[in-house]
């Protein structure tokens, strides 16, 4: 086991669908009751109704939607770059001695760098605009994607490769015909791990450097003492996370019907 062994996505029914939601309703009721009674300072916890109204207003004014699109654009483009580079490199690391020799130590050293700490560096190198954020997301999500691609390409069943060889597949076609499809589930797992990471990086960058987006909108609420904005943005982020996670899982099921 080395540091770069990313575990499978561990989850259970517990996160796939709660058996009961009475506790949530209880919490919401309690939230509303306590805040309306003025038992807690408005700034710390405004009533949920106020938060929802704020959320509605931000949505109608277009601010929330614009911020969401901005954040998603940054996260997705970064993720796209990381996927386009990370998957082939990861597979080559596993199948090609030279590429493996070159990249293995780089991954060992590069992977543990807390990617968030590079935000000030990227601000220096690429400024505080979109490009800087997209590149950082790309760099940050490259590691889990490449490592998962590498590990699953390494784990390809030797008998499958031999099967293809005996049926006449030439050596140079093996990667395409056997390694890639057999590694596909693991590769997709890497992307599933990288998706929340891309948002994690984008949010912090937006909070530190500004330039719009959900992270900026959320922290702005704190700085301008409009906590309803912070809460409303957080709920929006939660919804987005929920939808993205579900979508990716649906895509996985569709793509990997055979697995």
């Amino acid at each position: 086991m080395d540091v770069t062994n990313i575990a499978r996505i561990s989850r259970h029914d517990v996160v796939e669908g709660a058996k009961s939601i009475y506790s949530l309703i209880l919490l919401i009721a309690l939230w509303e009751l306590i805040t309306q009674a003025g038992l807690i300072h408005y700034y710390f916890l405004p009533p949920l109704s106020d938060v929802l109204i704020e959320g509605y207003e931000l949505t109608v004014s277009g601010e929330m939607i614009q911020a969401s699109l901005l954040t998603l654009k940054r996260a997705f483009l970064g993720l796209l770059i990381a996927t386009v580079l990370g998957v082939p490199i990861g597979i080559l690391i596993a199948r090609n001695r030279f590429v493996g020799w070159f990249f293995d130590p780089i991954i060992t050293i590069g992977y543990p760098v807390p990617i968030i700490s590079l935000i000030p560096v990227f601000m220096l190198w690429f400024g505080i605009g979109d490009v800087s954020k997209i590149i950082l997301v790309g760099v940050g999500t490259f590691w889990p994607i490449a490592i998962n691609a590498r590990n699953s390409a390494r784990a390809v069943n030797q008998n499958l490769i031999w099967s293809a060889r005996m049926m006449g597949t030439p050596k140079r076609n093996l990667v395409w015909k056997v390694v890639v499809p057999d590694a596909a589930p693991g590769v997709l797992t890497g992307i599933q791990i990288a998706l929340p990471l891309s948002l994690i990086i984008t949010f912090v960058f937006e909070m530190v450097a500004g330039g719009g987006g959900l992270g900026h909108l959320e922290i702005q609420g704190v700085r301008s003492f409009t906590s309803t904005q912070t809460y409303a943005t957080l709920i929006a982020i939660m919804l987005i996370g929920f939808v993205l996670d579900g979508t990716l899982r649906k895509i996985r099921r569709r793509l990997l019907r055979w697995a």
Binding site: N159, S163, M167, V178, P181, D182
Partner: peptide, 16 residues
């Protein structure tokens, strides 16, 4: 070579 065909114990079918 295609003059020989192996039948594996673990089947080794392409799952995809």
């Amino acid at each position: 070579g295609t003059d020989r065909g192996v039948v594996f114990q673990d089947y080794a079918l392409f799952p995809w």
